[in-house]
Design a protein around this nucleic acid. Structure first.
Lengths: 84, 84, 84, 84
DNA sequence: TCAGATAAAATCGCGC
DNA sequence: GCGCGATTTTATCTGA
């Protein structure tokens, strides 16, 4: 049921690709943590940095959503290529 | 182990309170759906309404986050009552 | 295009009704969380409570399903008011 | 308060480094999602794949824990280089 | 049936 | 070190 080349092999390949990607993600998370550590040792409170990052992200999200809205309005009016 | 007044009774009371609250939540969700239905029958595409609602919520979140940030800065400076 | 009473005003009214309902929903979700918190401080693990709530809901659904079935049978027999 | 080279500039640099890393993380998360999509279109239910990935991760963690334990025992015995 | 939105659960970082 | 709050991840659900 899982000879090489069969479905079992394909499944394993998929699982391993996911595992590699998640490993990469974990490494980046480590990097983020060390930047926070660096900030702290330079006198910037991590809590504040976190808030700044969150505030900037939310502002960007709000802008993106607004653009999405404009696109929708345009589509509604049959002008589907206005923002393409 | 579950005579009236014992833990069993208390557990049941908690469970029932949760169930009532979740029932309320479901009713409100129904109401939301019917408002979308009403909007539709008035010629407003639900998809657009959803986007507007989402955009407004995100903008409000961004503003709230910004205020939070100002509060944090103030606290950092020892001015904890500036925004109280 | 958005004079009072026009489509713009109607749209805003719809959006605001939805926002109020979603605010209510959020408040109820808060209440649910605090009941779980209360349960925890009385020694009941939230995870257990969640399982109980889910199990009871499933049982209730099963009963509703059964009633639905009875209603169908009755309709089949021309007795549409038996379970109304 | 934020002349180039001052604290303001340093703060911004830190924030931007974090944002870049989080952007990378998001891209990888996208990749993971598309692998799940690929799996699905090959007839493997994503939910199942998730369980497999989680189980393998747990097993790997358990092995790591076990090795840690062996290392501890060795240290206890003064054989600090046994598992180095 | 499928993607996208919503809600639930688990995890992580921070404070006391 | 532990509980609390926030973020991230998983599961459920609805609508196209």
């Amino acid at each position: 049921m899982s000879a090489p080349g069969s479905n079992g092999g394909q499944l394993l390949a998929l699982v391993e690709r996911i595992e590699r990607l998640e490993e990469d993600k974990r490494e980046i998370a480590e990097d983020v943590k060390s930047v926070y550590g660096e900030a702290k040792s330079n006198g910037f409170a991590p809590a504040i940095i976190r808030k700044i990052v969150a505030a900037r992200r939310k502002a960007a999200d709000a802008r993106a959503e607004e653009n999405e809205l404009l696109r929708l309005y345009a589509a509604e009016l049959g002008q589907t290529d206005l923002f393409a």
